[in-house]
Simulated assay, not measured.
Amino acid sequence: MFLQTIAEDEAKGRVAEIYSAQRAQSGMVMEAIRCFTARPDLLPAYMDFVMQARGNFSLSQRDWRIITFIAARDIPSTYCSHVYGRQLIDELGSRAAVLAVQRDHRNAGLSERDVAMLDYAEKITRDASRITIDDIGRLRDAGFSDTQICDIALCASFRSFVSRFFDAVGAVPEDAFLDSDEEFRTAMTVGKPI
């Protein structure tokens, strides 16, 4: 981390509560959390937003992860690619399936629904100014409601913000997210080297 942040043993108030909850949930306080404490007032606001966005997400947790993974590839975010790539191994069935999605989600054996969702997420991440009503029509044709389309846009756009912030302040993936398979680890390193 490039910036001075609040250490666990120095955390107080809401920051201490957030750190404690994350340690209980994942066994660590991720740099993705700690980096916000260079401005301690932002961590609670960030966590409140994340809890609201994810807690009321109209799609599945798998959808959140795969949208995030595609966005991370195109940002490019090594941190988020490692974190979400590891999480998707079980959900997609194998490292090979995750790598296939990363290489080309259109030819990775995903459903038409997934491809439409990821096409939209990809376009948002690469250049949201190119989104047209036709893109929204394709999503509606694939069965997505306007609330779900909003959530896809929110997820991809949110990842574009936080992943760039993580890189800008020097957050790096924790060892727990670095896969033991060298090919997979190399493929997840899409941006900043580890």
Rank of each mutant, 00 (worst) to 15 (best):
F158R: 05
D63Y: 03
A16N: 01
T186S: 12
R138L: 14
L88N: 05
E91H: 08
R34F: 13
Q25E: 14
Q22Y: 10
A156G: 11
T189S: 12
C155K: 08
S145C: 02
M117C: 06
D134F: 11
L139T: 13
R65C: 07
I136Q: 09
I66S: 02
R23Y: 07
R159C: 12
I70T: 14
V172I: 14
M117S: 03
D63E: 13
P44R: 07
G55E: 07
T37G: 00
R159P: 05
K12N: 10
V29Y: 03
M117Y: 03
A168Q: 11
R103K: 15
R126Y: 04
D9K: 11
T147F: 02
A24T: 08
T132M: 12
R106I: 08
D141P: 02
E17S: 10
C80S: 10
D48L: 02
A128I: 14
T189E: 14
V162D: 10
D114M: 00
Q4A: 14
A100N: 07
S157M: 10
H82R: 03
A38P: 02
G85S: 06
Q25L: 14
A53Q: 11
C150V: 15
F161R: 02
G170F: 13
M28Q: 11
V50L: 13
Q148T: 04
V15Q: 03
R103I: 08
R14K: 15
V29C: 06
G55H: 09
